[in-house]
């Protein structure tokens, strides 16, 4: 059992999502970064789609009510406090055994989102084939809502002997997001399309699991078509442009259909990156072909498999931590002075 002591920012349980119900208006949902979810689960000794906690910006404090193994995928600044009040750093991209009454303080997240998986998975009921939280309709997770202080979640297994680490954590590329021209590309002038591919966009404050509204250039609709369509299907990665010309990129919790013209779609291989986008971050787009998108999908799948295959026993934890503690700061200063 894990008890939530506090949860300052929205955090929700997510797994591989809820496919098969979009014709009923039920969104796909699921982890914004399915790759990192898979890594968190691999580090916790779980199958890739096991439900984990998706954390945004500032993570919760969690108390182990019984021994539990927890794994972190993401750039947390975490520490573990024991019952006597002693604190130790909890490094990222590895599993950690928590003894009874130990507290994991996950802290700030430099990676925007991160995942906390527990060995054995969180014991939550399946709703329409998934444990993913979809708050708007109260589906999945804990009563379909965000995590909050006082929640207690049962854990499926308590093998505290598990210790795994990821020697080469994944990095998020800064290259432009790859897109395929959208179903309603013809609704936009050629000038708007050129602008879309050349301009810089900024993620606005209107950003959540449903989508990201972008600031920057306004994309003009072709007056012969206008800015409304008879609603049809959208998908995570869809970039729709309402009448005000400000694009919206849809994410995992997006509705199933929409009435705005869709200028382009972010390719599947780049979807995980969108989950990490923070307000103020700049985005660029580049057009690719379907063939390039499929090649990118295969490459992303191969890289994830390779990353997970590199997971090693965590017995080096002590030495690594000692090394870092002793040398890291001096090393950085030396390196700066050398330049």
């Amino acid at each position: 059992m894990i008890e939530v002591l506090d949860c300052p920012m929205p955090a929700s349980f997510q797994d591989a999502g809820r496919p098969g119900y979009r014709h009923l208006g039920v969104p796909l949902s699921g982890a914004l970064d399915a790759d990192w979810l898979a890594i968190a689960n691999a580090l916790a000794g779980n199958p890739p789609g096991t439900v984990a906690l998706e954390v945004h910006l500032l993570g919760p404090r969690l108390r182990a009510k019984a021994p539990v193994t927890i794994a972190m995928a993401g750039e947390f600044s975490a520490r573990i406090e024991d019952a006597a009040g002693q604190s130790r750093a909890a490094s990222n991209w590895r599993s950690h055994a928590l003894a009874t009454d130990e507290i994991l303080v996950t802290g700030n997240l430099r990676s925007g989102i991160g995942y906390l998986a527990v060995h054995g998975g969180f014991d939550l009921p399946q709703v329409l084939g998934s444990r993913s939280t979809y708050a708007r309709a109260g589906l999945g997770g804990i009563d379909g809502r965000s995590l909050r202080a006082g929640d207690c979640i049962t854990v499926g297994a308590t093998n505290t002997r598990l210790s795994l680490r990821l020697p080469r954590p994944p990095h998020l590329p800064a290259s432009p997001l790859r897109v395929i021209p959208g179903p309603q590309r013809e609704y936009f002038t050629d000038a708007a399309w050129a602008c879309f591919l050349n301009a810089e966009f900024t993620v606005s404050r209107e950003a959540d699991r449903m989508g990201l509204r972008l600031d920057g250039a306004r994309l003009e609709h072709d007056s012969a078509y206008g800015a409304d369509i008879v609603s049809d299907a959208v998908t995570p990665g869809t970039i729709q442009v309402p009448g005000d010309g400000r694009p919206i990129i849809l994410l995992a919790d997006c509705q199933t259909v929409g009435g705005y013209p869709k200028i382009a779609t972010v390719i599947g291989a780049d979807l995980p990156r969108l989950g990490h986008a923070l307000p103020g971050q700049t985005l660029h787009f580049v057009e690719v072909s379907i063939a390039q998108a499929l090649a990118a999908r295969r490459q992303a799948a191969a890289e994830l498999a390779e990353c997970i295959a590199g997971i090693a026993p965590g017995s080096a934890e002590f030495n690594l931590d000692a090394l870092y503690a002793a040398n890291l700061i001096d090393g950085v200063i030396d390196a700066q002075q050398a330049n």
Partner: peptide, 22 residues
């Protein structure tokens, strides 16, 4: 195929392109 979504005027098929040839 994961989802088939009929709308007023169109039918959208969500699929895994690594399993089903486009």
């Amino acid at each position: 195929i994961s989802d088939v979504v009929p709308t007023y005027r169109s039918l959208t098929v969500h699929f895994d392109p690594l399993r089903l040839d486009r």
